[in-house]
Design a protein around this nucleic acid. Structure first.
Length: 342
DNA sequence: AACTCCTGCAACCGCACTTTG
DNA sequence: CCAAAGTGCGGTTGCAGGAGT
């Protein structure tokens, strides 16, 4: 459908914020909270649209924002998550405390993406731009790249589920609190909650079934060799078990917590595992005076090799190999390590 | 010193999704 | 159920400041 931007109203200021405006916005939010963003500017005495205020607050004024340079671990995390998630900045930002999606996006576009390009790696796919020579030298790379793509799809669906679960959990928690004030047990009585509200149990169940459909789709489409790679390396709960338990259980909150814990465990462990292969990757991408440091420091003198795109530079080739090995050693764990997520 | 080019980042834009009445 | 309002998100733009000539 689309909406006309709220800033279309004439007379509203655009562009950089002054310190006076910042103060007004800060003072208002500290005292009243932001409430409705649309009505905030008028109440706060700002000649801005609500959207502009929200952006200024979330990307700059919020007290829990860490500003300044990204450290090595943050850079690593961004690269690793981008390999899995692509340009899903908000999803990436959830795993980088105190950093905003906008800041991460900018940092990627201005720093990290360029590093990958200079290494001859496509920053979108995280594959070598000129795959033929490298893939032949690395062996089986295409297959691994396909696996990475599968993982990205899988993780994409997982993140959607995670976001949805977070919302549902909030609602469930709230409703549990309300109902528990008059009841000693926490079995959710969602269906009898306030009129007009959707039945949350059915809502979550619908999500589970959607997720299940996705899983079945994957099972039907992935070849058998790769199936184990679609599954979480760390989870101990099978999807069918979880689904059965969820549908059969009268305690939706227990099941939700179980699933959410599995989700969070997996995300944490993937990052941890990814960081476990930082040898090579760290030195490689962050230029700590190792091979890539040499490559980067000599960037300006090596544009010929770059523009030719042949990646014949020994450093580049070695670096690419290390980088891709690092990613794929994470993506392609040994079968014995793999247990189904659901 | 003056000019141009490049880089980094804050902010904007528009679409999509969710919530609300 | 529907339309409007509210919000989130990713892509893009414009400007300030630094580097190079």
């Amino acid at each position: 459908m689309g909406r006309s931007p709220c800033c279309d109203k004439m007379g509203l200021k655009k562009g950089p914020w002054t310190s006076e405006e910042d103060q007004k916005l800060l003072a208002y939010i500290e005292e009243h909270g932001h409430g409705s963003w649309r009505s905030l500017p008028e109440k706060a005495g700002l000649h801005r649209c609500g959207k502009s205020c929200r952006l200024r607050w979330t990307n700059y004024l919020r007290p829990d924002i860490k500003r300044g340079k990204f450290n090595l671990q943050e850079e690593q995390t961004i690269i690793q998550l981008h390999a899995l998630l692509g340009n899903r900045w908000s999803a990436i930002a959830t795993h980088l405390p105190k950093r905003t999606d906008n800041e991460i996006k900018n940092y990627w576009n201005t720093h990290l993406k360029k590093r990958l390009v200079k290494m001859g790696i496509d920053p979108v796919t995280h594959k070598p731009k000129n795959e033929t020579p490298l893939s032949s030298s690395l062996g089986g790379l295409s297959k691994n790249a396909a696996t990475l793509s599968h993982m990205a799809q899988w993780e994409s669906a997982r993140l959607e589920a995670e976001a949805r679960l977070a919302r549902e959990s909030k609602l469930l928690l709230y409703q549990t609190k309300v109902s528990s004030s008059s009841s000693s047990h926490h079995h959710l009585n969602i269906t009898s909650s306030s009129s007009g509200k959707q039945n949350t149990t059915l809502h979550v169940q619908r999500w589970m079934e959607t997720f299940f459909d996705f899983f079945v789709y994957k099972q039907n489409n992935a070849d058998h060799q790769q199936q184990h790679q679609l599954e979480s390396p760390t989870s101990t709960v099978s999807f069918s078990e979880a689904k059965t338990e969820f549908v059969g259980s009268s305690s939706a909150s227990t099941c939700l917590n179980m699933i959410k814990e599995a989700e969070n465990d997996w995300i944490s462990s993937t990052i941890h595992e990814f960081q476990g292969v930082e040898e090579g990757l760290t030195g490689l991408l962050l230029g700590g005076g190792d091979s890539l440091g040499r490559s980067f420091s000599a960037d300006k003198n090596e544009t010929a090799g770059e523009t030719s795109g042949d990646c014949n530079n020994g450093y580049y080739e070695e670096d690419n190999k290390n980088y891709l090995d690092s990613i794929f050693s994470f993506v392609d764990p040994s079968p014995s390590d793999s247990t189904p997520l659901f």
